[in-house]
Amino acid sequence: MKEQRQRSDAQTSEASVNAAADAVFQIRGVTKVYRMGEVEVHALKGVDLELYRGELVVLLGASGSGKSTLLNIIGGLDTPTEGTVVYQDHILTSADESELTRFRREHVGFVFQFYNLIPSLTALENVELITEIAESPISAKEALEMVGLSERIDHFPAQLSGGEQQRVAIARAVAKQPDVLLCDEPTGALDVTTGKLVLKVIEKVNRELGTTTAIITHNAAIAAMADRVIHIGSGRITEIIRNSEKKSPETLVW
């Protein structure tokens, strides 16, 4: 265990030397076909994409564009019909169910649109639930401090506002120090002010921990805070834009 941790530390430091040029995910020719009764739905039609260490990308697309499918495949929740997904030295496309579970457990942090906290656990316990099974987590309290909730750690989800719940969810996702943080419409259920607060926290995590972060959204305004904006439409990547200047979440307007 200790040895493993040392090795992963070594990897991290090596990676930082290679800086942003180091691709964490390599996605090649990924298609996804759902069969819904008699009808075949082509959700993804040949996607090629790299995600680089430490960057913050926004996957932007209308509903039904295939952005969620892509995120699910990257997160190890779904497997493509064709193509390969390589995460560092793991080939996700040939992994079985239990390998994918381990991948999610060790490397991925998820933030959901509807927070999905365990209602019977307090904020702190929700985070501890993850730190208990993680290899080299930061402490749950530290994670909650990072999202600005150190005052409310003993509250149950039902006693927290939507924005607070989402921040607990972010703390939960980052506490295990994931290699990648995947956020699925993280502001979708929140008002503007609260949404910005949540985005600020995501930006902070990305900046301070250097976690590769992907946000999917249909809200174009959020794109301005990304290193790269990946536009998706009808199952294809239509455009990738690198922002020359990242905007701070506070300055976003929608």
Binding site: G75, L77, S98, T101, R102, F103, R104, R105, E106, V108, F110, F112, N116, I118, P119, L129, I130, I133, R172, A173
Partner: peptide, 11 residues
């Protein structure tokens, strides 16, 4: 709740 935990990497 349980599916969320599966997503988060619980077996």
């Amino acid at each position: 709740e349980l599916s969320s935990l599966r997503v988060l990497g619980f077996t």
